[in-house]
Amino acid sequence: MDYKGVWILAEQSRGRVQRISHELLTRARQLAHNRGTDVAAMIFGHNIRQSDLQELIDRGADRVVAVEAPQLEKFLPEPYAACMLKIIADYKPEIIIAGATSTGRTLMPYVAVRANAGLTADCTVLDIEQETGNLLQTRPAIGGNILATIKTPSHRPQMATVRPRSTKPAAKQHGRTGEIVRLKAPAHCLESRIKHVGFIPNESEHSLQESDIVVSAGRGIGKAENLPLVQRLADELRAALGASRDVVDRGWLSYPHQVGLSGKTVSPKLYFACGISGAIQHLAGMQTSETIVAVNTDADAQIFSVADFGIVGDIFEILPVLCERLKQAGSRQ
């Protein structure tokens, strides 16, 4: 098989390259190093900023292929798939990794079926098997209760998605050089049976994944009426408000707040878990946080096994005292 090179699917919005692309470069550089090969980025869009393409080089790509057309400005499965299939045909990538974003999670399976390629979703660890050079893809399954390592022995390319925010963006190295290719998308790649007719932006810009501090509520809050208690702590810490799946399933908070395997992955400087028992499904979405604090009445709760600091106690007694202390500490500064 003459497939070679590690490729990422870089994403753009309104011509600007998105952060996930830089995170993928971190993964790709590591894989390329272990495989002894180069890193390339493919990106589909319209009027993508040249300096952003150069930044992909600065952050670790050796080659960038930008396929452009007005119809590629926003993600549409058919034209994006046609463009990715063209890249696969022209360049024969050995590995393609994409973000597990709404785009990556739609485009990658659509392409994998056509390309007769293996695809693994939501990988947490990617590595190269030294003896065979195969990509080893490790991902959580069965609600995060197990991790499975998966490989694609005889189909190429090997395709994988990784969760946004599960790695840091690759650092810029000034003076890095690489090739930037801008291609006009061929007309036959632009047919779509789907049309964009509008867009409604989220009302509150949900900063859960961008926030340095996340305070999350679990089933321990007991009922929706107790949420202000946790919200107050979030306000004191200037944190975003998260929730476990239980809390969202009960309708106490909306889905965009959900942290975990079936919600968002967060990796803040501080994750503060209030009344969360720590089902693996939840831990899968927050255990890479730099510091984890947990308050729970059950001393054996699993959340303590991933926490750096734990208080075994009742959130209804602890949170008000803590908020008061934080307020004092804040006003003294």
Binding site: G118, L136, H155, F304, A307, G310, E317, I318
Partner: peptide, 24 residues
């Protein structure tokens, strides 16, 4: 007919040294 193969299944490791304080 499946391109992918599961080669290993294992339990996630959870390890941090938690300093725990009981507030009773």
């Amino acid at each position: 007919g499946s391109p992918t193969r599961v080669v290993k299944i294992f339990r996630p490791k959870l390890a941090r040294q938690c300093q725990k304080h009981v507030a009773d």
